[in-house]
Amino acid sequence: MESSLTSEQKKINAAKISKREKIFEFIFFRTSQASSMFVLVVLLGIFLSLLINAWPSFKEFGFGFFFSPEWNITKNKFGGLIGIYGTVISSFIALLIATPLSFGIALFLTEICPMVLRRPLGIAVELLAAIPSIIYGMFGLFVFSPIFADYVEPFLQATLGHIPGVGILFSGGGNGIGVLCAGLILAMMILPFISAVMRDVFLIVPPVLKESAYGIGCTTWEVSRFVVLPYTKNGLIGGIMLGLGRALGETMAVTFVIGNAQRIQPSLFAPGSSIASTLANQFGEASPGLHFSSLFALGLTLFIITLIVLTLAKLMLIRMQKNEGASS
């Protein structure tokens, strides 16, 4: 067979194949490149479309949109402060509770837990993260908030409610639906998320570092506190901020339990609104005009806040990985 082809023919064949391959190569390279650019285009598209739709509202209310606590559909006056306040406070409560718990869980999974249980418990935590947020919302509304109203609220009122200054945060109360309840449900939601990141970060610590600390007689807690924690500081903060990013943009879990009242009240038991819950409740019924545009303005605000938080989180995590490269 081989000999039947002259060397001239072989050369022509090779040139043909190489030309064809080059064309395919070009097509494949460009399509794959285009699809990777797609995500960039979408990000820009989201930003632009929100900005365009929000523009009438920004033009009408100016910079004051972010500081006005008025959301009045009948008077056509809109300000974003209620939503921003609700979003920030509920996320802050969530972080306050979820951070130490996640740290404990990650520590347990990497240092304390017997080897046999590590994988199943790790998977259990990841499953908790996979449960859709609407389930957390239903759980919060039907199961958690009644218990919260019957037991937790009276307890907090009886204890923290009497401290001057702080007491006002725990005044009033009622059916369990409110900013604090939303914060607690959010905490449950982001808990597995932060724990998983923290665990992965802890696993990066070189065993030699830990072993040498154990070797000079450190206890597990001392190793964690003085070796693991400093080594993974950036990564931990990154993980916490990733969780914050999730909490800020979370819609369904919050909408079910925050109460959806358009006011700012000092008590954490009182119902409020987050940006996402306002959008979920009002967007369907909004008529074109200022109301519609103001909802887009809220959406843009949320988008920018989460982008900033997530970007900082990613930068922290990247910096940690770079440090790891430098020190080893």
Binding site: V39, L40, V42, L43, I46, S49, G249, T251, L279, T306
Partner: peptide
């Protein structure tokens, strides 16, 4: 360089609020 920017943006889009994506598709 572009690829590393894309990588970064993809990571961020992983956690971007889904309701905002709803708004985007609505307007689009």
């Amino acid at each position: 360089k572009v690829a590393s920017v894309t990588r970064f943006v993809t990571d961020i889009m992983l956690s971007a609020p889904s309701i905002v994506i709803g708004l985007f598709v609505y307007s689009l």
